[in-house]
């Protein structure tokens, strides 16, 4: 037992000594994680709305194609999608679209993430749009309101209320999914933690920095959870 505590103390000492170096590296890795998260949201939130309109289109072929694409994207692993987006141009088309640097990897990752998440979001939007009773539309109509007035002043907030909980779920999943970009060597926080196993800044063979990356995800998703709870509460004044 005393041996265990001794090794724990040794670990603590080592971690305390290495922490400043590791912290700095993980921070810059997390910055890349954050960037991917934000860029994905900025792209996928509007694109998802467009896709949801496609999957509700009255023009049957458009609806069928959209729903097929959504099925493919939601039904296959994001990791495979990342690999395809990143390696298909170079290995199959023999085209060097992404270059060889971090920027190219980021661009490829962002495209895969945006498209993947837009498909998930589109289904959330669709459920939100369809959740507003048709009576709301009709009540606005018989009161002489225009289509845009009914959408923006009657239906939109009701849709948002329906969308917030599933959207919060999906967005918190995205926080953790950004780690998948590691598979194409994007230098996000997992990559930064792993670097200390191979050796970096005079530290090698250490796995604790990799384990420690979980704290970043935890804190960030915790923050988002608080924000979404607040938003949900704000919208709870009506039913």
């Amino acid at each position: 037992m005393s041996e265990f505590f001794a090794s724990l103390a040794a670990l603590w000492e080592k971690v305390a000594q290495q922490f400043p170096t590791v912290f700095q590296a993980l921070n810059s890795g997390f910055l890349q994680t954050l960037k991917l998260f934000i860029v994905t949201l900025l792209g996928a939130l509007p694109l998802g709305l467009v896709i949801s309109f496609g999957s509700m289109a009255r023009f049957a072929p458009l609806k069928a194609v959209t729903r097929f694409v959504v099925w493919v994207v939601r039904g296959s692993p994001l990791m495979i999608q990342l690999l395809i987006v990143y390696y298909f141009p170079g290995l199959v088309l023999k085209q060097n679209w992404w270059g060889s640097g971090e920027e190219g990897r980021f661009l490829a990752a962002a495209i895969a993430f945006i498209f993947n998440y837009a498909c998930y979001f589109s289904e959330i939007y669709r459920s939100g749009i369809q959740a507003v009773p048709v009576g709301q539309q009709e009540a606005g109509q018989v009161l002489g309101m225009t289509g845009p007035q009914i959408f923006f002043r009657v239906k939109l907030l009701q849709m948002i209320k329906h969308i917030v909980p599933p959207m919060a779920n999906e967005i918190i999943t995205l926080v953790k999914d950004t780690s998948l970009a590691r598979i194409i060597a994007l230098q996000e926080v997992i990559w930064a933690g792993q670097a200390f196993m191979k050796g970096k800044s005079g530290i090698a063979g250490e796995i604790w920095p990799l384990f420690f990356t979980a704290v970043y995800y935890l804190l960030f998703s915790g923050l988002l959870t608080l924000l979404f709870n607040k938003l949900e509460k704000k919208l709870s004044y009506f039913r």
């Binding site: 009773p133 709301q136 009540a139 018989v142 309101m145 225009t146 009657v154």
Partner: peptide, 27 residues
Amino acid sequence: FGLVFQSFNLFPQYSVLDNLCLAPRCL
């Protein structure tokens, strides 16, 4: 014409007063 529905169809996010005022203000 005006129409009162079987299921009321009030706008849930607006107060009673705003339910009455919304359409007239839009128009």
